[in-house]
């Protein structure tokens, strides 16, 4: 069976910590930084469980500030 690998790059400087990407992710990859904040004081989003990412772009699609880049690789058995 083909295996899907995904990864996200989040612009933590731009992120406003709205949490909508965290809610949208179907595989619980994302969380907001519990303590750390960015220059504007927001608890920015980060990939807490990067191995679970399937590159579906749900997070990026709902992000109001366009902070998320998504990468996806489909590995097919040889």
């Amino acid at each position: 069976m083909a295996k899907v690998h995904g990864a996200v790059v989040i612009d933590g400087k731009r992120c406003k910590g709205c949490d909508l990407c965290v809610v949208a992710c179907p595989t619980d990859v994302l969380l907001l930084q519990p303590k750390e904040v960015n220059d504007r004081g927001y608890h920015y989003a980060y990939a807490a469980n990067p191995d679970k990412c399937i590159g579906c772009a749900a997070c990026a699609t709902v992000c109001p500030d366009a902070c998320i880049e998504v990468y996806r690789v489909v590995e097919r058995p040889a």
């Binding site: 990864a7 790059v9 590159g55 772009a57 902070c67 998320i68 880049e69 998504v70 990468y71």
Partner: peptide
């Protein structure tokens, strides 16, 4: 597959609109 291997230009499926 490592994150570095996944994060390559040819694998990009979503980015900030130009």
């Amino acid at each position: 597959m490592t994150t570095e291997e996944i994060i390559q230009p040819q694998n990009k499926v979503y980015s900030r609109p130009r």
